[in-house]
Amino acid sequence: MKTYLLPSIKITVVLLVLLSGLYPLVIAGIGKFTPGQGDGVTVTYKGRVVGYANIGQKFTKDQYFWSRPSAANYQADAGAGSNKGPSNPDYLKGVEKLIDTFMVHNPTVKRGEIPAELVTSSGSGLDPDLSPAGAGVQVARIAKVRNLPAAQVEKIIADNTEGPVLGLFGPSKVNVLKMNVALDELKK
């Protein structure tokens, strides 16, 4: 045991300096040259930071695109999923309630048109995106509240939609915060 004790301690200290000291510092140095300088990418509106591009926000007012439901209530220092199992009866009742709420606020939308993402919560509780379909079913409501032509709202969705990587891999998505900033910018 003694033969191994001293080298063990020494190599631990040396590797700590290399792996925990230097390596993350070098990454942090490189991070200075990334969008957001390694602090996270923010979104500004009228010169004020209104959030992080990658962190979803709670939107419940009718004039905004709603974000997905969140088990963490969009607390970005305590993200969480619901962890409800697919067969849990209480969970299914909760989904039913979310469907009802959505239909009350969006009377022109038929039940079968509501995509599941709008009544289920994300894994992180901080999902910043919707699918284009999830944004599309909200157009009629927003256009009515804001007194805008539907085409203008649809254009905001189209402008903010990001397609698959290289046009080939993964789903399309649209950032909720960016769409809502674009909506507010129309007011000027």
Binding site: R68, G81, S82, N83, K84, P86, Y91, I99, R111, G112, E113, I114, P115, A116, E117, V119, T120, S121, S122, G123, S124, D127, P128, D129, L130, S131, A133, G134, G170, P171, K173
Partner: peptide
């Protein structure tokens, strides 16, 4: 009675 174009989405991220 709702649609699941993206599949089962509880606990998943849109991206």
């Amino acid at each position: 009675g709702i649609s699941q174009p993206g599949g089962s989405m509880e606990g998943k991220e849109v991206r």
